[in-house]
Every structure is written in C-alpha cells, then in structure tokens.
Write a protein that binds this DNA or RNA. Structure first.
Lengths: 349, 349
DNA sequence: TTGTAGGCGTTATCAA
DNA sequence: TTGATAACGCCTACAA
C-alpha cells in the first residue's frame, strides 16, 4: 500500500547524499542555494515529509502530550480539552487523548501506553487524583510515572504525590455562591450531589460549610445529600428533599448536571424556579445559559485553566521551574434560576 | 530527567545479549525458561518497557489511528469519539484526536501531522467531507493522503474522492419523523436550521421533501429556513417563523441544538410545546431526554456507527476489503415535544 | 559545501 | 538456545 519514501530516495533522485537532504529539511546547516533548490524540487515532487517517529527516536522527544481524563463526553472535560489542544498546538505539541471512563484500571493502562509512546509529558484530569483517599498502588504508579516524564494534575491532587497542580478556585466559587444567596436573603440552603469521597465534592462542601458559618447561617445536615454528578442524581436527590417536612429556599448543586436534574424534578412538582426555590449549579457548561430558566453557575475559566495547565507542563518538559501550584479564579454567572427571596411566599409540602 | 533505560541495560544486568531480551519481550521465539526468568526479573526490577517508537519504526506500523473532527465540544462528536476510542482499543489501536474547529486549514495541517506521526489510518468526520461542493484543493489533498494511508469518512463524502464511507441513515431518520408527524395529523410542517451547502442539512432536507411529497403534503418554502447548527440559530429561526402570517403545527429541526433554541423561543412567546406546536430534533444527544418537555429525536446509534467506522478502517489497514459504503440504521425516539394535533385548537398570530 | 559513518531502541535473520 | 549483525528513517559529528 504505502511505499514510504525516505531521504535516501530523495538523495538519489537529487544526486546528493542523504545528509544534504537532511540539512535542507532541518535548515540547521547551510547548503548551497542551488543544491537546496534542486533537493526541494524533488521533495516537492514526491510530496515527501520526514518520518517523525524516526526523528523522535533520535531527539528523544516526541512533541506529544498525553491527556488522561474520565470522559470526554462530559461538557466540562470536552470544553477543557479543546482549550488544551489549542494551547498545546500553539506551543508546538500535539495531544494524545485517553478516556479512562472512570475506571482506574484504564487509567493505569493508559499511563503505561503514554509512556510507551514516549509522550513528553502528561496532563491528568479527574479519576484517581480526584479521590479524597488515595490508593497506595496508584500513588506508587503515579510516582513511578513522574520519574520518567513530567506530570501536571488538573483540578486534583494525591497524597504523597508531589506533582505540579493547576486548578480552579472551587472554594472561591462556592463563597461567591453563598454570598449571592445571602444577598438574596436566603437563609435555608441545601447542598446536593456529588459522590462521597470525590474531592471536587469535598472541596465545595467544605467551602459551603465555611461560607455558611461565616454568614452565621445554620446548616441543616438533612439538606446535605450526596449521590452522583449526573442529571439522574439531581432528580433523585431533589425528590428526597421534597419528602422532608422542612424545605430550603435555595439549593446549591455540585455541578450543572445535578442542577438540571433538580430543576426538572422541582418543576414536575409544580415548584417554581426561582420564585419558590433558587437553584445554583457549577461549571457553567454551554447549556447552563439555555436550560430554562437559565442556570446561575460558576464558570471555571476553561481557557485559562487549560492554557495554564499546558504551559506548566511544557515548562517542566523544558526543564524550567514553574509554580508548584497555580490557581485560576472562578466567576459567578447569575441567571434566571436564582432570585431574591419573596417574603410573602413560602414553600410547604 | 529521564535516563531512559533500554534493552541493552537489561541485557547487561542479566548477562545475556540484547537479542535474548528482545525475545523475552516479544515471546516470538523460545528462550530457556531459566534465562527467561532471570531476564524478566531484571525487567521487573527496572520497570522496563520497550520504546514503542523504535518498534513502530521497524514494524512500519504505529498502531495509532488518527481522528479528525470539527469540534469535540459538540455532544454528537464527543459521544461518537468515545465509542470509537473504545472500539479501537479493543482492536489494539490507540486514537489520535484532532479538533479542526471547522477550519479547513487546520484540517490540512492535522492531516499532514497525522501522516508525519505515521498513523496507520485516519477517520475523517465533518468539515470538508460535509460540504456539498468539494473544493478541488481539498480533494487533491484527500486523494494524496489516501495514497499513503487508508481513510474512512464518517457521515460524509467528497466528489472525486473514492474513500470508504460509514454513515447513519439520516434520510431514513427523516422519513420516520415525517411518518410520525403524519400519524399525528400534522399537515403544516417546517424545516429549520443547518448551514446551506453542508450535506448533513442537504440530506435531511431532501429526505424531508421526499417524505412530504410521498404523503402528499404541501411544502411551504417560507417554512424552510437555513442558519446554523447551534442553539442561537434555533432561536433566531423560530423568531423568523413567528413573524409569518401562517404558522406550521410542527417544526423539524436539523439537530437537537436547533430544536432547543426553537423550543426556548416559542415558549418565550407563550406557545406551548407540544400542545400548540410539535418540535422534532435530530441526533438524540444526552440532553434531548432532559430538556423539557423532552425532545423527540432521531438517535444515530453512536455505538454502531463508531464501531463500524473503526472496524472498517482496521480492515483496510490489514489489507482486507470491507464494504465500500456501510449504512447504520437510525431510530426515532418519541418524547414530550411532539403530539397529535388537537382539532379544537389552532395557532394564530 | 558536501559526504561518510555512527547511533537513536528495537527486532529479525543468520550463524554458532 | 543464544549472540552478532543489519535494518527501520533520520540527524549530526567529523572528515574531505
């Protein structure tokens, strides 16, 4: 099928040596303009391009960055990955995407595959670096990986793994949310969703506690429910909430998907959003703006987050010493799902 | 940083020759159990793994598949890509993702990059293979690419490019939609969205015409509006529709995003979905199920589509002769956004 | 300015 | 059963 053509072929046809062709290709050394022209002609003619595998072998760098993530089908990751790819390209790297599908074994396999393929560095998102308690084996594996190639964690960390970290300020985002709700006179606030033991829930929940306490707001533990990160979970948890005698006036969700589920379920029970209950999401996915009544959410500044992660990794690759940990600010986006509490109204069921 | 360790190191430490180490690694030839054990021990000790670049160079195959697509951030593609990756992995290949961001220049660059990286085959989605009129330069480029490596088009084609094609039966999907609407007694049907000159619009629109004619339904050209494939476009087009004296009772959208936009706008104008107007989408993205009132849509059978595309490509790589063109059936999913026309109701404005 | 030779890490062939 | 050698495609000293 593919009679792949090499510098030797080009050299033959141009009546020069392979090294001269190579020189023309790299431009690192000078070649007589005339021979150069001749060689370029032949290169053009055959549409020749050097085998980057052979080059990588020689240079000991592949100009590839590996990205391990749980699931590209989640808008948070697909958005982030898109930004990362763009930044990597800008810096002369291509990216190698690996969906672990949240299976730690897949993560291990991919980690190994990426090393085999000689990527110059790895960006790790979600999965094991998002577990509150890190599994010893995975810690060992990560550390072993990091001996071979630089690794940057995005929005996560692992105990006993001294990786560089780039993350969004999820805590600050949560403070903003509670501040908003406080200003909107909400005093009865719930926190819904997220898997127990997953740090993106834990971080937000801790900030939730802090912020509530700071405003001297009482925390009702019945209103703090864990589940998962998807729409179904939001629906499920909202129902649980509705069975309770006392209901909150505002619900903070671990992400926008949960918020969507919550909103759907509440509406099915004829509870109006935001008139009866305010609902807040997190991540500001594309749909947050469009899902009626528009979801108040916290944007993770995908562009900055992705770019900084890639930049940090590339600096490490180049032997520089970037910040060990870098935090990207978040920003609250207020939309229709939240509003000021109306004194003349109350929710009972 | 990375004092990369080679079979020579392993050979030295095990007091055998590099070739023996290689034999242990590949398992292609027999080695004395005792030496094998010894070598494996050292391999284990250093956590050694062979450099796959070097292997690829020798084998002239990288076990990598390139995927070029417009934008991973669109649920249609992210879902599809996820399935493709899984299937590729199953067949022993890793995937190399490239977001062209709908820029033909990026497509060209990536095509070249993938060849440079010696991928064994390329899956091409969207972009230039989705243009009704193919640009000559891109045609030439595609043909040139196909001389070097097998290429499979997914849901697209190009004039004068004789590539293998795997696609969903978008026409059949549209027939199903019109049949449904017919059974629901709709007689006034609109078609909204999609860029003119993009084939995924053209195919659906042609099927729309066919199906309408088949049912002897009159087609009102004012109700056939083009725009884009996103939510904003759906909103825009719905407004245009509302300005007209006569309004359809059902709106068929080029995809779910457009449908979401249409539904939003109609609801803002106090038009009830589906009581006043039925709205149909296409693609059955994750959110179609959850966006109130639930969007009736056509699923593209992502799993089958992705798997078949990868299988076809891998067969080509292995010198087999798969079907030149393969069509995956679609399936209509009926949800809350469509219903039977109520005779006692009419929509005027 | 250009050519020769050696090496990047691996595997396959051939000989021992 | 094992080792030496050449080859994959490219690049860079070094020599000419």
């Amino acid at each position: 099928m593919k009679k792949s053509i090499t510098i030797y072929d080009i050299a033959n046809e141009s009546n020069v040596s392979p090294s001269t062709v190579s020189r023309v290709l790299t431009g690192n050394e000078r070649v007589k303009p005339e021979t150069k022209r001749k060689v370029l002609e032949v290169i053009e003619k055959y549409n020749f391009r050097p085998n980057s595998l052979a080059r990588s072998l020689l240079y000991k760098q592949s100009k590839m960055i590996g990205i391990i993530l749980p699931d590209i089908n989640h808008p948070f990751f697909s958005m982030l990955v898109q930004k990362m790819e763009a930044k990597a390209l800008e810096l002369g790297y291509t990216t190698f995407l690996c969906n672990s599908m949240n299976d730690p074994e897949n993560e291990s396999t991919y980690l190994q595959t990426l090393l085999d393929k000689q990527v110059d560095g790895i960006l790790f998102l979600g999965g094991r670096i998002n577990e509150v308690d890190s599994n010893e084996i995975y810690v060992a594996e990560m550390n072993n990986t990091m001996e071979q190639v630089p690794v940057v964690f995005v929005n996560g960390r692992m105990d006993n793994v001294n990786a560089h970290i780039v993350k969004t300020d999820e805590s600050a985002g949560m403070y903003e949310i509670i501040d908003l709700l406080w200003n909107f006179k909400h005093r009865k606030i719930a926190f819904l969703g997220g898997l127990k033991g997953v740090s993106s829930r834990k971080i937000k929940l801790e900030a939730f506690h802090d912020a509530m306490t700071r405003h001297s707001l009482e925390i009702n533990d019945d209103w703090i429910l864990d589940g998962d990160f998807d729409i179904e979970s939001g629906e499920e948890l909202a129902k649980q909430l509705l069975y309770m005698k006392d209901c909150p006036t505002a619900i903070v969700c671990v992400n926008d998907f949960v918020a969507i589920g919550v909103i759907r379920t509440l509406q099915q029970f004829d509870i109006r959003i935001p008139d009866d209950i305010s609902v807040i999401g997190f991540d500001d996915i594309y749909l947050a703006k469009y899902f009626p009544p528009g979801i108040t959410s916290v944007t993770q500044n995908y562009n900055q987050l992705g770019a900084k992660a890639v930049e940090t990794l590339v600096e490490l690759i180049n032997g520089k010493r970037p910040e060990k940990e870098w935090t990207i600010p978040t920003k609250l986006v207020v939309r229709g799902s939240s509003k000021m509490v109306q004194n003349d109204k109350s929710v009972d069921n």
